[in-house]
Design a binder for these strands. Structure first.
Lengths: 164, 164
DNA sequence: CGTTTGCAGTTGTACTATACAACCAGACCA
DNA sequence: TGGTCTGGTTGTATAGTACAACTGCAAACG
């Protein structure tokens, strides 16, 4: 299905031989990203038993946005609202976030980081960052910046209803 | 879009100010990789209900290596051997891989893709690759290659205790 | 008004991936 | 032969997730 959607792209050979250099690169990116994803969770759990990868991202988002609704989180991370609901419940129970009823719409609970949440988040961020730093410590500055830019760009992409 | 869309870095994370540009880049890489990881799984499941992200990577590894032991998979993906064992069992039950007793060491089961496995893998790879391609279609060739190289390099890194 | 429709969030249920620990079996060493 | 190491399986527990059914509030419609 997905594959058939973009007939104009040059993936005719696909898994066959005679791939262009571009396809090879895409293939590599695809594979490496996958490997990364596979590992991320596992290592995240070990590094910070206190804060799962999900919780971490959620908290991060909250900090970044200065509070938002559960639904926003769900939409943003492509999670089911029930999942978010439970995660949020956990985070609240742990005192990392708090809910504030939106006075204008009583259905809505705006989520905010608590001080404790901010603190934990900072800690975990720091240690994660340190781990990343360790990996990246020998990279030339230029490469770091380019890599960062590439990732950002990659993630920023949104499924255009039609690749224009 | 948005976990990614605070990309311009400068996102000093309460970890102290005065971050160097290098640290900022690391921070961005960290963040973007995390976002990616968070999403990868969710989308993977939806794209290919037939083949979980894990199974997919496992199959991919098998193809790449032309067969290997369960322990190798575990080591490579930082998974517990029990996890691999179960995954392997599933894949075998589905007829995607087969086990061959190593004649030289009866403890060892060398895992191989079956034809069916190769086929499914190719399918999923193709559709995943197409999705990636779609994202990357507008990237200049040079960037693609650099990005691929960065990712490879990133993933290739091993904790020094191991490598040294 | 009251009803319907819709959105935010929760809860019940089920499944998958995962880890850890206990275990089994074959191999290697002394 | 026995002790230990290694590859793999199984028991058990947990986290994260989805989906569906539900509650509660709100806005629109009559």
């Amino acid at each position: 299905m997905t594959a058939a959607d973009g007939p104009d792209v040059t993936h005719e050979t696909a898994v066959g031989q005679g791939e262009s250099a571009g396809e090879a690169a895409v293939e590599t990116i695809h594979r490496e990203m996958t490997v990364f994803a596979r590992r991320a969770r596992a290592s995240a759990g070990r590094m910070h038993p206190e804060l799962s990868l999900v919780s971490y991202t959620l908290l991060g988002h909250l900090e970044e946005r200065g509070g938002c609704r559960a639904t926003d989180l769900a939409a943003h991370y492509a999670l089911d609202k029930s999942t978010v609901s439970r995660q949020v419940a956990v985070l609240e129970r742990s005192g990392l976030i708090e809910r504030r009823q939106d006075p204008e719409d009583h259905r809505v609970q705006v989520l905010h980081l608590t001080d404790a949440g901010r603190q934990i988040l900072a800690q975990v961020t720091e240690s994660r960052r340190a781990a990343f730093q360790e990996r990246l410590t020998e990279w030339p500055q230029e490469d770091l910046e380019r890599f960062a830019a590439y990732l950002t760009r990659y993630n920023a992409w949104t499924p255009t209803r039609n690749a224009g």
